[in-house]
Amino acid sequence: MFSQKVAQQSLRRLAVQQPAAMRWSMMRASPVAVALGKNVQTRPVTSSPNTEDPTQILAKQRLNRPVAPHLAIYKPQIGWVASSLHRITGVALSGSLYLWATAYLVSPALGWHLESASMVAAFGALPLVAKVLLKATMALPFTFHCMNGVRHLMWDLGRGLTNPTIIKSGWTVVGLSVASALTLAFI
């Protein structure tokens, strides 16, 4: 175990040296000296008589650091907006599915009627405009998440990663998802 550590340390020390310096150190130093780090250059420790409070030093250094730009100063681009909406729709769809499934499972114990027949009857009693709006509200996140998911899969394959292609595919996803959501809403 100790010999493995010594060998690893010596290889690490040799790896960080310059090639010429490595050859020179190998010629003038024995393998034991290299393994034990006897041929490693050192520099003397210097200290300054600093009597300042360390927390104040850090506070002064933070004032000199650049401030990271915030999303508010960037012009919205279809790439990051669509990627953000992809995550949001994924969370919304899965969260609503989990909530509905939990309510469906506990509904007999609570006396709720969430069986298929009562849901079909309740939906059938709605006015036509409410049906279309409700269906479009449910279909738009689903279609957008599906279409943008295909776009992300293409990116994972390394295709379509140029700026013009990202812009075209982003607006194509928006158009196709709105068109398919409206189609599903009017069916």
Rank of each mutant, 00 (worst) to 15 (best):
residue 4 Q to W: 06
residue 5 K to P: 00
residue 7 A to M: 11
residue 7 A to Q: 09
residue 8 Q to D: 15
residue 9 Q to H: 12
residue 15 A to Y: 07
residue 27 M to V: 15
residue 31 P to S: 05
residue 32 V to Q: 15
residue 35 A to W: 03
residue 35 A to L: 01
residue 39 N to R: 01
residue 40 V to E: 08
residue 46 T to D: 10
residue 47 S to L: 10
residue 49 P to H: 15
residue 51 T to L: 14
residue 53 D to I: 10
residue 54 P to Q: 07
residue 54 P to H: 02
residue 56 Q to W: 12
residue 58 L to P: 02
residue 61 Q to S: 11
residue 61 Q to H: 04
residue 61 Q to N: 08
residue 61 Q to K: 14
residue 69 P to E: 13
residue 70 H to N: 11
residue 73 I to Y: 09
residue 75 K to C: 01
residue 76 P to R: 00
residue 80 W to D: 09
residue 84 S to M: 08
residue 85 L to R: 02
residue 88 I to L: 15
residue 95 G to C: 02
residue 96 S to T: 08
residue 97 L to S: 13
residue 100 W to G: 02
residue 102 T to L: 15
residue 110 L to R: 07
residue 111 G to L: 12
residue 112 W to D: 03
residue 115 E to T: 03
residue 116 S to E: 10
residue 118 S to V: 14
residue 123 F to D: 09
residue 126 L to E: 06
residue 128 L to P: 08
residue 129 V to W: 10
residue 130 A to C: 00
residue 131 K to F: 11
residue 131 K to Q: 13
residue 139 A to L: 13
residue 141 P to T: 09
residue 141 P to D: 13
residue 142 F to V: 13
residue 142 F to L: 15
residue 143 T to S: 15
residue 146 C to A: 15
residue 149 G to V: 07
residue 150 V to A: 14
residue 151 R to K: 12
residue 152 H to Y: 06
residue 155 W to S: 11
residue 157 L to W: 14
residue 158 G to D: 13
residue 163 N to K: 13
residue 172 T to F: 10
residue 176 L to Y: 08
residue 181 A to T: 07
residue 186 F to W: 14
